[in-house]
């Protein structure tokens, strides 16, 4: 169960492969998109093996589809297990969403209605995944752009119940909390106050984009911008409550030079150190 030490990492993305392979990138861990490496062989898998020799790795999936009404896919789990067995990641995560139904794959993280019926489906999916992998899964809170008329509970209530029923961990994405809070009009502070922080093992930081849609301003989780100030403030609150969580920056588009991301990671480190110092109790 205990696995605290490494704390600050980056997502491994193609433009930075060469620097990570050359070594000495000052990160405590790297996170990779699982599906990019669920291949038979070749260069991608070799790169991951080499990076794994230098850094702890977290596997982060986008196609588990834990909220599919027709259940998680056994073949997908078999291939994920094969990758897990080889890479021995520190964490394996995916999202609270659905991406597959009746043979259709969306390749986008789609929203779920927060109902008792959905909770039963998601918990069955988490249980099946944890059984297939033989380890704890982390589930990430999503960004969302619609909500359902049938919702019976808030997202944070849904997450709390999912954790209680399945024993899964949480990957808390503070950008997603901010984005969804702006889009749906909830207070991110209320969200954080309800999170079972003892289950939070990872924290994601990212940027977003503002768009005008049908006359309404919305935030979209684009991962193409630096982490903005409101998200840093949420991070400071989150890392204070989950001081052992591994934190990292996700950047998937408009990817800058590695130094720029490392500078952002230094901000995360500095915030955490300030909080660590504040929490020291004088003898």
């Amino acid at each position: 169960m205990p696995l605290p030490a490494p704390r600050f990492g980056l997502g491994l993305r193609k433009p930075h492969y060469a620097e990570f392979l050359a070594g000495d990138v000052p990160v405590d861990f790297v996170e990779v998109i699982s599906e990019n490496f669920m291949v038979a062989g070749g260069r991608p898998r070799d790169i991951l093996r080499q990076v794994r020799e230098r850094h702890p790795v977290a596997l982060h999936g986008v196609s588990l589809s834990v909220g599919s009404a027709d259940g998680v896919d056994a073949e997908y789990l078999r291939r994920l297990r094969s990758l897990v067995d080889e890479i021995e990641p520190a964490f394996v995560s995916d999202h609270l969403c659905w991406t597959r139904f009746a043979g259709f794959q969306s390749h986008d993280l789609l929203p779920l209605p927060y109902t008792a019926a959905t909770l039963a489906v998601v918990c069955a999916g988490v249980d099946a995944t944890q059984n297939a992998l033989g380890r704890q899964m982390l589930i990430e809170n999503p960004s969302s752009y619609v909500s359902f008329a049938a919702d019976e509970m808030s997202e944070w209530e849904f997450l709390r119940e999912m954790v209680a029923r399945t024993g899964c961990g949480l990957l808390l994405d503070v950008n997603n909390i901010y984005v969804s809070g702006q889009n749906h009009g909830f207070d991110p502070a209320a969200y954080l106050a309800a999170i079972p922080f003892e289950a939070v093992r990872q924290i994601h930081l990212a940027g977003h984009t503002s768009r005008e849609i049908d006359g309404r301003g919305m935030l979209v989780d684009t991962h193409d911008q630096p982490v903005p100030d409101p998200v840093w403030r949420l991070f400071a609150e989150a890392i204070a409550r989950a001081p052992h969580a591994w934190a990292m920056i996700e950047r998937d588009d408009n990817i800058p030079a590695l130094d720029a991301l490392l500078a952002e990671l230094d901000v995360a480190r500095a915030l955490a150190q300030t909080i660590d110092a504040d929490q020291q109790v004088p003898a």
């Binding site: 969306s106 752009y145 619609v146 359902f148 008329a149 919702d151 309404r216 979209v220």
Partner: peptide, 17 residues
């Protein structure tokens, strides 16, 4: 659309897809 409390964000998903 009738299942949603507010359907305006649907365009984001269509655009992403």
């Amino acid at each position: 659309a009738p299942a949603l409390a507010d359907a305006r964000g649907l365009a984001v998903y269509q655009n992403n897809y």
